[in-house]
């Protein structure tokens, strides 16, 4: 279990070793405070959707899930992509309403990022990896939280670096996007080293 958590945060970091959610990762890492906000929102959504999707997958979609109804041959796994994206959109919507009602301060802080997260591939990718690696529901919950934390850690670190980098005197063409890619590459090297530490 702790192996899954460690892998999810460092060695299998969604952003740095699987390139998931990189569009948002590069676009919203200009300021540390917004990056931390987005990271927190992602941990929350990831922590809810992955175990929920695991539950739905095992109860409705997996091969043989309809055995109790006398339909042991039914295999609905091909529907997983469309079901997962629906669940994610719904969870984000509910989370937004709940936050607005109970924690309005947090809602105002995260406001614009929540809807953005629906189309963040880190979220859908987390759920698809959960299926591919055959996690059960407890493992899925840990994987969801861990991968969320890993992604948040990575974006916070990148934003902090980019805040300093603003004062650097770089070649013109490298300014902005180019430099962000190179820095992300260096961070990715660092996180790969953490992977060696786990084994």
């Amino acid at each position: 279990m702790s192996g899954i958590l460690f892998d999810a945060i460092f060695a299998d970091n969604l952003a740095l070793s699987f390139f998931l959610g990189i569009c948002t990762f590069l676009a919203v890492s200009q300021k540390l405070s917004t990056a931390v906000g987005l990271g927190l929102a992602l941990i929350a959504v990831q922590g809810v959707t992955v175990p929920l999707n695991a539950l739905i997958y095992h109860a409705l979609l997996a091969k043989g899930a309809w055995g109790w109804a006398g339909l042991p041959e039914v295999d609905l796994t091909h529907l997983r992509i469309i079901v997962f994206i629906g669940v994610i959109a719904a969870v984000v919507q509910v989370l937004e309403m709940a936050l607005d009602r109970f924690v309005p301060v947090l809602h105002r802080g995260l406001g614009i990022f929540l809807p953005l997260i629906t189309v963040n591939c880190a979220i859908l990718g987390g759920s698809l990896f959960m299926v591919e690696r055959r996690y059960d529901i407890a493992e899925a919950a840990i994987w969801g939280i861990g991968s969320g934390i890993g992604w948040a850690l990575a974006i916070a670190a990148l934003a902090a670096i980019r805040e300093r980098l603003r004062y650097a005197d770089m070649p013109e063409g490298l300014q902005g996007l180019g430099a962000a890619f190179i820095v992300t590459g260096l961070m990715s090297l660092g996180f790969t080293a953490f992977g060696g530490l786990a084994r």
Binding site: F19, E172, G173, L174, Q175, L177, T184, G185, L189, T192
Partner: peptide, 27 residues
């Protein structure tokens, strides 16, 4: 490995922007 993809794409962006200076982001 994963880091190389970032490096190659970063250098590619640099190359394209050197060839087309109008795309350079103002510091």
């Amino acid at each position: 490995l994963a880091p190389a993809a970032f490096f190659v794409l970063g250098l590619l962006v640099w190359a394209i922007r050197s060839a087309r200076p109008e795309q350079v982001e103002r510091p």
